[in-house]
Amino acid sequence: MRVRKLIARRIALMIFVLWGIITITFIVARVIPADPIGSILGPQAPPELVEKLRKEWGLDKPLYQQYFDYIINVLHGDFGKSIKTNRPVLEDLKQFFPATIELATFSLIIAVLIGVPLGILSALKKDSAIDYLSRMFALTGVSTPVFWLGLVLLYLFYYKIQIFPEPGRLSVGVQPPDPITGMILLDSLLRGKFDVFLDALKHIILPSIVLGFYNSAYIMRITRASVLEVISQEYVRMAIAKGLRRRKVILKHVFRNAMIPIVTVIGITYGSLLEGAVLTETIFAWPGLGRYATQAFLSLDYNAVVGATFLIALVYSLVNLVVDVLYIYIDPRTRGALEG
């Protein structure tokens, strides 16, 4: 029962946070810009057009009225039309979102492949040269501007030694499979088109390395800390004292217990991958949410800005919610802490 109550509380918090997200996006789109219409159309815009748009957006109404209308629209999934694509923002989001999910998931795999082994190695060889080098490597990852690393890798591996293809999701001329999920890797497998799958795989590797490297640092650090903590526990020392082989102790006693925080960190990382996607997608011409959001920010396409920001924040908080709930289930010790 206690668990259920905790989860209910966490979900209630989520609803409050959603309201907060809506309010902040409202402030960004409607309150801060002195003249949203003017900044989009420019100073030479014909007054009739400005007036028409003002009406269409409801900017002629008082601010509180705009705010309530805005909340109701967002709750209906109605973000209005994008000025740039001239389509409902929701349609755009549906189209661009799967590409981002695909990229983020693949990057997560790479981040885990880098972060977990390095963290374990670092912990087992604490304070050795290996430890410092691994930490340095992970810190370099988190310090590297992803937009720059993307450019450098493209220059090296696409222009110079052509082992990876051009930016984008597929090579020119390759037809994407009919969408089922919108994720090309998955769809091409489901449709049995292995040549398309291979082409898509080649395209996703470079951007995923860029994004995964950046996000591996945090996974590495938590893995290291977690393994270190378990190693110093009584039962591990006991196992070694009993004469069990070190290898066996590490595999059986250390890793199993060290995995709990690592799993939750992997969840949190997923959220931060969405953020890195904004910059990575711009470099790799990846038609995802990040690139859509950036273009919206640059062209002051406020409806699109709100839609994209809202969706990213929504997914980010949902992932955090799932992680928190998982945590409550996996590790009973946290229950007391969360209640306090």
Binding site: L13, V17, G20, I24, I32, E275, A293, L298, A313, Y316
Partner: peptide, 23 residues
């Protein structure tokens, strides 16, 4: 703390982008 919850619900870059572009 509820106010901080709201601000922490956004990925940092996205929130910074939103405010920087509005400002």
């Amino acid at each position: 703390m509820r106010i901080t919850d709201i601000f922490m619900a956004f990925p940092r870059l996205v929130l910074a982008l939103a405010f920087a572009s509005a400002l």
